[in-house]
Design a protein around this nucleic acid. Structure first.
Length: 430
RNA sequence: GGAGAGAUGGCUGAGCGGCUGAAAGCGGCGGUCUCGAAAACCGUUAGUCCGGCACCCCCGGGCUCGGGGGUUCAAAUCCCCCUCUCUCCGCCA
């Protein structure tokens, strides 16, 4: 959420920022609600001040035994109360309208973010590794996985519905190996590991920006809880309504959770395989940082995510999202895209964002500096995938496949897997 | 799931419907003392919104004692609903 005063004082800047994002917003409703709210507050608070002082004098009159004057004053206050009640109702409406406006407004892109209207305008920052040249016909991971007996899409449909996945034998073990490898690597680099609920309440999902605007993208329960679309939601909300000690910043957190997404509106896209499913595993990183260092933190998160891909020896590239492709809460985002032979292209496997104070304001997460009497300020929150596990498995299967349909296990995963290859012998795969 | 108890400032914990945004203690901050520190003593110490001043300070006012509603001229205090915590019972991986 943007600061109301900032939006009010910098309306044309905000309008320009929204235009760069491709977000329709003229600010008229905001301005109306904002000024209406302040006018109502001034009026109603003057009346409340009058009520308070009158009530006090009534007490004095009663004590002095001047009951007829007290009764007269009571009648007057009753009349004032009727006006207050009416104005408070109007004020509540104005505040609702204002909140609606502010909650629907995305973050302002950082000045360094490249201009653009779609993913076509994203900028490649760097490349790592070389896509492998196959001297045989490379298979897609959905064919490989099924042939190896480690991925079962058909039974997953029976168990749930389409866009769910069932992993068996070495497939299940590979999933687990990746999760452990990623968490071990991050915790060795100073990230604190958390295990958290996968259902969150409305306040929690509002704080990170999923609600109210993206309610259709979330799975929900009948009693008002939501399945989390990413661990970011929980890791950020750990400190909701808290004041952190500046000396403790930055905080580096990580956690593994399943992630649930309705994928409403993505019908027909990435319909095969592990790329776009309703439930997938992800190891997530979240940082809480001082405003003045949050962009350094962002580079650190990207490096931590890149480290995983490098250890797995998967070719990838880093791109910087343009203004038009930026996520709702983000001021600046780098995506990591892994080479995916079946697409003949790079495919997103991690997204690292600096949300500046946008989520912190919604979540009311502040910090107090060590200087005496310093006012609590909003922290900056950052998040990055480290990495999406399902897509990582897909990339490993495709990039490490052999002519006979077997898959070599990346070196760093072998201690977790206990095998060096996932072979074509179905029995050996569990 | 059943029965009971509770929720007050950074923490502990008082609080006859009006003089209580809140006693006291702890903690924090500032000071006296000291070469310095500790101890002792003195002072100070909630958040947020609106307005005066475009910021901070300061000044005036509103709101906030888990959340919401009600009674009343006036609610931390009385009534109702909800949430959460604790104790006991039941159930359970």
């Amino acid at each position: 959420m943007l600061d109301e005063r900032y939006v009010r004082d910098n309306l044309s800047l905000v309008q320009e920022a929204m235009r760069q994002r491709g977000h329709e917003w003229d600010g008229a409703d905001f301005t109306r609600a904002s000024s209406e709210r302040r006018e109502l507050i001034s009026t109603v608070e003057a009346l409340k001040a009058r009520r308070n002082s009158s009530s006090q004098s009534i007490g004095a009159l009663i004590k002095a035994g001047r009951s007829e004057q007290a009764e007269q004053a009571k009648a007057e206050v009753r009349a004032v109360n009727e006006q207050i009640e009416d104005l408070d109702r109007q004020l509540a409406h104005a505040e609702e309208a204002l909140a609606r406006e502010l909650l629907a407004l995305p973050n302002i892109p950082d000045a360094s973010v490249p201009m653009g209207t779609s993913e076509n305008d994203n900028v490649e920052v760097r490349l790592w590794g070389m896509p492998r040249q196959f001297d045989f016909i490379a298979k897609a991971h959905w064919d490989l996985g099924v042939a190896l007996g480690i991925i079962d899409f058909e039974r997953a449909v029976k168990l749930a519905k389409s866009r769910f996945v069932l992993l068996g034998g070495l497939g299940a073990r590979l999933e687990r190996a990746l999760i452990h490898f990623m968490l071990d690597t991050h915790t060795n680099h100073g990230f604190k590991e958390w295990w958290c609920p996968v259902l969150g309440n409305a306040d929690t999902l509002t704080a990170t920006g999923q609600l109210p605007k993206f309610a259709d993208d979330q799975f929900k329960t009948t009693d008002g809880l939501y399945l989390i679309p990413t661990a970011e939601v929980m890791l950020v909300n750990i400190h909701r309504d808290e004041v952190l000690d500046a000396a403790d910043l930055p905080l580096h957190y990580c956690g593994f959770t399943p992630c649930f997404r309705e994928e409403a509106g993505s019908a027909g896209r990435d319909t095969r395989g592990l790329i776009r499913v309703h439930q997938f595993d992800k190891v997530e990183m979240v940082s809480f940082a001082l405003p003045q260092t949050s962009y350094e933190e962002l580079e650190g998160l990207v490096a931590a995510a890149e480290n995983i891909l490098q250890m797995l020896e998967l070719p990838y590239r880093v791109i910087e999202l343009c203004t038009g492709d930026l996520g709702f809460s983000s001021a600046k985002t780098y995506d990591l895209e892994v080479w995916m032979p079946s697409y003949g292209d790079y495919k997103e496997i991690s997204s690292c964002s600096n949300c500046t104070d946008f989520q912190a304001r919604r979540a009311n997460i502040r910090y107090r500096s060590t200087e005496a009497n310093a006012r609590a300020q909003f922290v900056h929150t950052l998040n990055g995938s480290g990495l999406a596990v399902g897509r990582c498995m897909a990339a490993i299967l495709e990039n490490y496949q052999q002519p006979d349909g077997s898959v070599i296990v990346p070196e760093v995963l072998r201690p977790y897997m206990g095998v060096e290859t996932i072979g074509p012998d179905l029995k050996a795969n569990g």
